[in-house]
Amino acid sequence: MKEKDILIDYKDHQVVLYAEKSDNTIGPVQTGSYVTSHYYNEFLSLMGSLERSLYEKLQKGEISPVFLYMTLEELTVSELALRVKIPLRRVKKHLTVKHFPAVKVDELRRYAEVFNIPVANFFQVIATRQDNKWRMGYSADMENKKPLTISQEETNNPYVVFTKPEINQP
């Protein structure tokens, strides 16, 4: 691959590729990511539709919150069990609506740490984006037109989160 063939102007996702330079050497070239620059919207739409369908199922009581986050984070049950240090059989139970109420609070905290969310998020669905810049899956939604952002801050108590609605700056 020649250097000139891989150069892509995409500042948001930079990668280093190796390519043949004009002096016949092969060296590193910092450039934009081809896949992100061409398929980012496609990726957002795929993940957005998955997120929406999972939240719908959650609200209908068809899946447990643990199942929702495990699927969104693309973890398998075995990997999740290893990460939360809970026996596989027990994790499998926590994925079902029937057995989710049997999850202990400490176990929820461990799940929350793996999913990097506050414990409170297992019991609520927040309709507005949590973060204008980074939060994905809602970018094409009309809901984003609302001038509200919900931000959540950790407190020193691992079981409590500070949820703060804010008016977006124009």
Partner: peptide
């Protein structure tokens, strides 16, 4: 390509 391979 993208996941830290240097391409190809």
């Amino acid at each position: 390509e993208d996941q830290g391979t240097g391409g190809g």
